[in-house]
């Protein structure tokens, strides 16, 4: 070893930081971090502290106000009564249909494309369509009347069912597409292997496919539930916003934009977020009991 360089110098400080993964490239994260802190975390905590600073009373009085008033408190139950069945129906209906359509067939792309339409249309347009279509003089009731199934028009708008249908129309395609992609992530040779071992289709489905699909179903349920839980426009437009479809997001909106009581609105938003997170946490806890590793498919 000859040469004029110093003997065994410690590595440069940049190297030592870089070894822990900290280097100039992390600057790329900074804009997004600033953004998420300023526009998501800060407002969230601002809302949280605001909810403890009511216009009158002690720090918890807005929460107390919400829970002591049965009209307000009831919005939680109303929301859950709409969102949970809708999310459950969407996921459960999606499973057999996706199971049947998971293979390749002509028109698959067309079916999936058509299914995207209601998602992109969004709840406002769906509400408008439902008012026309399901209304007392709409085509749906006309068909029922013409085929003598009913004697007088069924009331399907401006009540619970209007909101429920709007959630199915937007939520079902969403759930279906998710379930379909989870299903195609399961290696089809697993079922063939089970078949060679003597399992009929029922047991192939219940013993092999369903257990592997369960985590995906749980995730799908969560995402569908989040969509349904925040139902707002359709609850106002096709529901009965003063009564049976006065959902919690509407209560929060009214507090903020009709009563201009921001602390109270924040408190309701916090309660709303909390209820939703509890449901999601329960589902995810159940999900963790299933096998969640690779399902042998591609991707």
């Amino acid at each position: 070893m000859s040469g004029a360089g110093p003997g065994r110098p410690l590595a440069h400080w940049q190297h030592r930081l870089a070894e822990r993964g900290v280097d100039r490239q992390l600057w790329l994260l900074v804009p997004a971090l600033v953004f998420v802190i300023a526009l998501f975390l800060y407002p969230f905590f601002y809302g949280l502290t605001l909810s403890f600073q009511p216009t009158t009373g002690g720090p918890f009085s807005d929460y107390a106000r919400f829970f002591s008033d049965s009209y307000e408190r009831g919005t939680i139950w109303i929301t859950l009564r709409i969102a949970l069945p809708a999310a459950l129906l969407n996921v459960l209906a999606a499973v057999p249909i996706a199971y049947r359509m998971r293979g390749r067939f002509r028109g698959k792309r067309l079916v999936t494309t058509l299914l995207v339409v209601p998602i992109t249309l969004g709840t406002v347009l769906t509400a408008q369509g439902l008012l026309n279509f399901l209304g007392p003089t709409g085509w749906f009731n006309r068909i029922l009347l013409a085929s003598n199934l009913v004697d007088e028009p069924v009331r399907l708008t401006h009540n619970y069912w209007g909101v429920f249908f709007s959630l199915v129309i937007t939520g079902f395609p969403f759930a279906f597409l998710l379930v379909l992609s989870y299903l195609s992530g399961i290696d089809p040779t697993l079922e063939r292997a089970a078949a060679t071992l003597g399992a009929d289709w029922r047991r192939r489905f219940t013993r092999i496919t369903l257990p592997l699909l369960m985590p995906g179903l749980a995730t799908t349920f969560c995402l569908t539930f989040v969509l349904a839980f925040s139902v707002f426009p359709s609850a106002v437009l096709v529901g009965n916003p003063a009564g049976e479809t006065r959902v919690i997001s509407l209560a929060a909106y009214q507090a903020a934009y009709e009563q201009y009581d921001y602390p109270y609105a924040s408190a309701i938003a916090m309660i709303m977020g909390f209820v939703e997170l509890v449901i999601i946490a329960v589902v995810l806890a159940a999900r963790s009991r299933f096998y969640t590793g690779s399902t042998g498919g591609k991707g």
């Binding site: 040469g3 360089g5 110093p6 065994r8 110098p9 410690l10 590595a11 440069h12 940049q14 190297h15 030592r16 870089a18 070894e19 280097d23």
Partner: peptide, 9 residues
């Protein structure tokens, strides 16, 4: 890759 120790001349 950064070095942990040493140098290159």
């Amino acid at each position: 890759l950064p070095l942990t120790e040493g140098s290159i001349w």
